[in-house]
Design a protein around this nucleic acid. Structure first.
Length: 1143
RNA sequence: GGGCGAUUAGCUCAGUUGGUUAGAGCAUCCCUCUGAUAAGGGGAAGGUCUCAAGUUCGAGUCUUGAAUCGCCCA
């Protein structure tokens, strides 16, 4: 017996049962054992998920793909590593710990203690990893997961006391160490489980990568002006500012007037000699410059104009009586306040070299910078100068840009070019440094008012406006960025760039545009900034000497050999701050003592190294060779071109010059159902747990699997419900149908060895098996190409065919009380289909496939029963559907292909017949005398072969082929444009019109006789004319592709009586259903009916009794029966039924 | 500013080498079937294929330009 299957089922609850079943049977471990000795390997490398917060439904998207292909290749017999990864180090962990602890700045961290702070970072990572592990398991994601409880325990221990010694057990072996040491070894072979990028191995492997870069001379310390987060007090690298880093923000826009000291207007043109005189007489002459970052004005050293722009010279008389002349580009005159008079104009290129009074020349910071500049330039006095720059535009502002080389990236480059001093105004928290007078100690974002007041006092202020713009914000904490001049560490891309491009070319990018994107990024990218002035992360293995030289250390062993100080304090700790900072080395030649730079590394280094660190590159090269390169990786592509994909390729290019993976699958962005990004604050975010609880993981996974990779996924409950209704429920219903009837008939599958005798299959059986084979082929081809969507769609189509054709057409075959050969064939076929289908869908929907498999394969097995589970586990069999071999593709036979074509045709005829029924308003329950069909020879053969199917579907007594046009159809003749277009060219319209004029019947006659047709002097060959049968107007018919179906709707008494009998049957069966009877229950049936109906019931008594399983049929009322009354077709009917106790 | 892509029914999207009447799913409305079905089937309605110009006998499809929207990079 199969376990009974309810048609109404709580899928999420059932999934939890399956999870318990897998846990109790250790199904995943069994799979690993079964594949351990396989010489086929599928190497998947997981892109580490940031172990920071609970998983979102967008994570589940990618994780579905990861699981799908690992399961698929496991079923195909491939051995795998099954290692998940967690991204652990970096600013995002620090930011969250800071939030938890209400820290405001780095000073708070220092005060709290770096060691304790880093302990909290590790704790947060471990707790997040535990939660994400649980959620991944809920998704049905099979991986070598850590025990979440153990991770939480470690998280607790690491903050309690990282130095306490603990022992974990693995495979019966004790593993002992301090908590810190054990945590640093997570994911390594002896501990197993997910890899953690904070592991010692990961960090030291990055060291060796950096050393290799250094040996090639690519590592350097560079001064630059970079985007800087004043809250996190760290630079934000080019890699990290993505589109999400930009937010709308209102800033004050200040227009300043810079008083000219020297100028030359000999190249200016004047509107009149008087204008020139007015210019000369004006006491003050100013440049108008505009900025949206007022805090940079105190660092101003020069002003730039567009060489090609034209500048207006205007005069204004201010209210206080001041007469002033201004220079600004002539497209920006609207910025002027009040009336003005244009005196003349001058090209930007002729303004170069002019000088002006500095805005804040009196500040000590400027005086110092000036002095330093003077020393460097043989005592020359520095002057604020006008330069030309092509980057100056006039869409906004004044066409004159103020430049602060210490506070803007372009300004920095310009300052370098023109040999200007650089004034850096801000400290790392965004506050003004000493030497800026009243500004000192104030935050960059709070000084606009003060700057305005200071400028006013000096007479340099012109106007202030509000300005809305997209401004860069910190991607982690959302603080508006500033620009700071800093020293950071870089990897030069000059040489590496091209090597990386060559490696990227070898990779199969899906979708294909990924290759172009990556190429683009590599072509344009700057040197890779790898340092961050923070605490929690990779300790950059760079040791600096007092003379400014530095060394890169490549390993723990090397550091040990080179250490001259601090080794004792460090040894036994993970290579993190603060302990690593204690170690000093000695320069072998100069004897100077080197100190580690305090910076930590860019987190993409951590993720990029995993193709090496997790494959034991340093410790077990043979193992690495077996698994490298990966066959497949997948992540969401927005962002990853310059993050993980980039760092993975970069590091593999440096270490081995080889591609890290053969295939990269990228997919788009998950949005809400309206197409808007999900945000917690907007209230449109859906938590993973909530979606899994409401919709179920299988439904979610199917939605992900059928998604086009390059389209954004609009995720929501409507979409999920659609999947459930269209795919999951029909599948479940077919399965439930099978189990219900098989149990009623006591049918069970024959053991393999007994199946030598082939069952006599009906055409319907052979058809569904051919469709199954066709589907299996399509699914294999799609999954081999890492294309989930065609696989999912092919299965959807198959489930639809199975449910709406095979089962519907087969239903009666299961009804009889006796087991017949045909019934046996139907059971055997449906069983074969369902067990194959369960395997076919298993990688996509692991839960429902397992439920079906367990019930269909294991008699009297209860998935929820621990005892049954135990027996299964101990059987040592390949018991799970996920242990089975995947259905293999095979070539279809010619017979199968023909059968598929035939049935497609038959179904088209049936659809047309239904369409005709609908038009004629004669319901299908009413039998009709005949259907009339127009069809060509091939179609006729198919129709005759499935004659009974069509008559049954259409509820007609007979089919009749209509020989000639006239009865149902007329013909239309059309030129074959594809053929004639080339032949006739411009004459085509003439011939086309001419053909339309001819009598279609004579053309058809000619074509059928193989004669050419003459049209307007052109002779058309028979194969150049297309003949279409079209339904004749006025008749109730429907037609398509040359097939036309009409119905004879004339009724006689016999037909009407039969129709009434069917009405009765339906009502009785309705009543059986509402009365809660089983499908096999026998009944007594009694009725009262109006005359005509009574006669019909008498005439069709046997039919009615058979269809309703009535053992007795009588007029009247059953005393203790269930009754119902109805009126239809002008007749009255009351029925009552009563269950017969037993057969 | 540069690059890539998109624009087709109310919504989400197909549309094969240019070819005769541009499709699907969802939503809406009508009808219908039903002893697997929270289902199923049939039908209706819904389109100047973003706009303009060009190539061609013929353009949703090819070319050019414009507009709008994405994404990537400056």
């Amino acid at each position: 017996m199969f376990q009974p299957v309810a048609t109404q089922i709580d899928f999420p609850a059932q999934e939890r049962d399956v999870l318990a079943f897998w846990a109790r049977t250790r199904a995943f471990d069994r799979l690993r054992e079964l594949r351990a000795d396989s010489d086929k390997r599928f190497s998947f490398i997981d892109g580490p998920i940031t172990a920071n917060n609970p998983m979102g439904v967008h994570h589940a998207w990618g994780r579905t793909y990861k699981d799908l292909w690992q399961r698929y290749f496991a079923m195909k017999g491939y051995n795998q590593r099954w290692q998940n990864g967690f991204d652990c180090q970096g600013l995002w962990v620090e930011v969250n710990v800071e939030k938890d602890m209400s820290f405001k700045s780095k000073r708070d961290i220092e005060a709290f203690g770096m060691e304790r702070f880093i302990g909290l970072c590790k704790q947060r990572v471990l707790n997040s990893a535990a939660m994400q592990t649980e959620q991944s398991i809920r998704l049905g994601y099979w991986m070598d997961w850590n025990d979440p409880e153990e991770l939480r325990w470690l998280a607790q221990k690491i903050v309690e006391d990282p130095q306490q010694v603990i022992t974990l057990e693995r495979n019966g072996q004790p593993i002992t160490g301090t908590v810190e040491q054990i945590v640093g070894r997570l994911g390594l072979p002896e501990l197993g489980g997910s890899y953690f990028t904070f592991s010692d191995e990961n960090n030291y492997q990055i060291w060796s990568f950096l050393k290799k870069c250094h040996e090639r001379g690519w590592i350097y310390r560079g001064e630059d002006v970079i985007p800087w987060c004043p809250r996190c007090a760290t630079g934000i690298s080019q890699h990290e500012i993505d589109t999400e880093g930009y937010k709308d923000r209102e800033d004050p826009a200040i227009t300043v007037r810079m008083k000219l000291k020297s100028f030359d207007v000999s190249q200016a043109t004047w509107v009149s000699p008087q204008a020139r005189a007015k210019f000369d007489h004006a006491p003050g002459k100013f440049l108008l410059a505009w900025t949206t970052t007022p805090w940079t004005l105190p660092a101003n050293v020069m002003a730039s104009v567009g060489p090609k722009l034209t500048y207006a010279i205007v005069r204004q008389l201010h209210k206080d009586g001041e007469l002033a002349v201004y220079f600004l580009s002539n497209k920006t005159l609207s910025i002027l306040r009040g009336e003005y008079e244009v005196l003349g104009e001058i090209q930007g290129e002729h303004m170069a070299g002019w000088t002006y009074e500095g805005l804040f020349d009196d500040l000590p910071a400027f005086i110092d910078a000036h002095k330093r500049w003077q020393d460097k330039h043989d005592g020359r006095t520095f002057a604020h100068t006008v330069i030309t720059w092509d980057g100056v535009g006039e869409d906004e502002g004044t066409g004159i840009v103020h430049n602060a080389p210490g506070a803007g990236p372009e300004d920095y480059q310009l300052g370098k070019q023109h040999g200007m001093p650089k004034i850096a105004p801000l400290n790392e928290d965004g506050y003004f440094l000493d030497g800026f007078g009243e500004l000192t100690g104030k935050h960059a974002h709070e000084v606009p008012d003060l700057v305005e007041a200071l400028l006013k006092a000096k007479g340099y202020f012109y106007r202030r406006d509000k300005y809305m713009h997209r401004y860069a914000h910190c991607w982690r904490c959302g603080t508006p960025l500033v620009y700071r001049m800093v020293d950071e560490w870089y990897i030069s891309m000059d040489e590496l760039r091209y090597a990386m491009m060559a490696v990227s070319e070898q990779i199969n990018w899906i979708p294909a545009f990924g290759k172009e994107r990556e190429r683009d990024w590599l072509r344009n990218m700057h040197d890779w900034m790898i340092s961050k002035k923070r605490y929690w992360g990779l300790a950059l293995p760079i040791w600096e000497y007092p003379d400014g030289t530095f060394e890169v250390i490549g390993s723990y062993e090397e550091l040990k050999a080179r250490a001259v100080e601090g080794w004792e304090e460090f040894d036994g700790h993970t290579p993190h701050r603060p302990y690593i900072d204690k170690v000093k080395i000695k320069h072998p030649v100069t004897g100077l003592i080197g100190t580690r730079v305090p910076d930590v590394g860019n987190p993409w280094l951590d993720a990029g190294i995993v193709a090496y660190s997790t494959l034991r590159y340093r410790t077990d090269r043979a193992y690495w060779e077996q698994w490298f390169p990966a066959d497949f990786i997948t992540e969401s592509f927005p962002g990853q071109f310059r993050n993980w994909f980039y760092s993975l390729i970069a590091m593999s290019t440096v270490l081995e010059g080889r591609m890290p993976t053969r295939t990269i699958l990228g997919y788009a962005t998950l949005l809400d159902e309206k197409g808007e990004p999900m945000h917690k604050s907007k209230g449109n975010a859906i938590e993973f747990n909530e979606a899994a609880d409401k919709a179920g993981a299988d439904v979610m996974r199917w939605l992900y699997a059928r998604q086009r990779y390059d389209d954004n996924l609009l995720f929501g409950y409507n979409a999920l419900n659609e999947v459930r209704r269209q795919v999951i429920i029909p599948l479940w219903n077919v399965y439930a149908f099978f189990v219900t009837y098989a149990n009623a008939d006591g049918w069970s599958p024959k053991p393999q060895e007994a199946q030598e005798q082939p069952t006599m299959l009906s055409a319907l059986d052979r058809w569904v098996l051919a469709r199954l084979a066709e589907t299996t082929n399509a699914v294999n081809a799609a999954l081999d190409a890492y294309d989930a969507r065609p696989a999912a769609l092919a299965i959807e189509k198959f489930i639809d065919d199975l449910s709406n054709w095979y089962v519907r057409r087969s239903r009666e075959r299961f009804w009889g009380s006796q087991m017949t050969t045909d019934k046996e064939a139907a059971y055997a076929t449906l069983y074969e289909v369902l067990t194959t289908l369960a395997r076919l869908i298993a990688p996509i929907v692991p839960f429902i496939s397992e439920v079906m498999w367990q019930n269909l394969r294991n008699a009297d097995f209860r998935i929820q029963n621990p005892e049954d589970n135990r027996r299964l586990r101990e059987s040592r069999r390949a018991f799970s559907v996920h242990h089975q071999p995947y259905p293999q593709p095979r070539e279809l036979t010619e017979e199968e292909r023909a059968l598929l074509r035939e049935v497609a045709l038959v179904r088209a005829v049936v659809a047309l017949g239904h369409s005709t029924r609908a038009q004629s308003k004669v319901k299908v329950r009413q039998p009709l005398r005949k259907a009339m069909i127009v069809a060509d020879d091939e179609a006729r053969r198919a129709i005759l072969a499935h004659y009974d199917v069509i008559t049954d579907e259409l509820n007609v007594k007979a089919l009749e082929f209509v020989e000639r046009e006239g009865e149902l159809v007329s013909y239309r003749v059309l030129p074959d444009l594809k053929k004639l277009g080339k032949k006739l060219g411009a004459d085509l319209p003439k011939v086309r019109a001419g053909l339309g004029q001819l009598d279609p019947s004579s053309v058809v006659a000619a074509v059928k006789a193989g004669q050419p047709v003459a049209v307007n002097g052109v002779s058309l060959q028979p194969d150049e004319v297309i003949v279409q049968a079209v339904p004749r107007e006025g008749l109730i018919v429907a037609g398509e592709n040359g097939i036309v179906v009409g119905l004879d709707t004339t009724l006689d008494e016999a037909l009407i009586a039969e129709g009434l009998a069917r009405e009765v049957v339906r009502r009785v069966n309705d009543l059986r259903k509402t009365a809660g009877l089983n499908v096999s229950d026998r009944i007594h049936l009694a009725y009262n009916a109006s005359d005509r109906l009574r006669r019909a019931i008498a005439d069709f008594a046997d039919y009615i009794a058979g269809e309703t399983l009535s053992v007795a049929l009588s007029e009247g009322q059953l005393a203790d029966g269930v009754s119902a009354s109805d009126a239809f077709d002008g007749e009255q009917l009351t029925i009552s039924i009563k269950k017969v106790s037993d057969r």
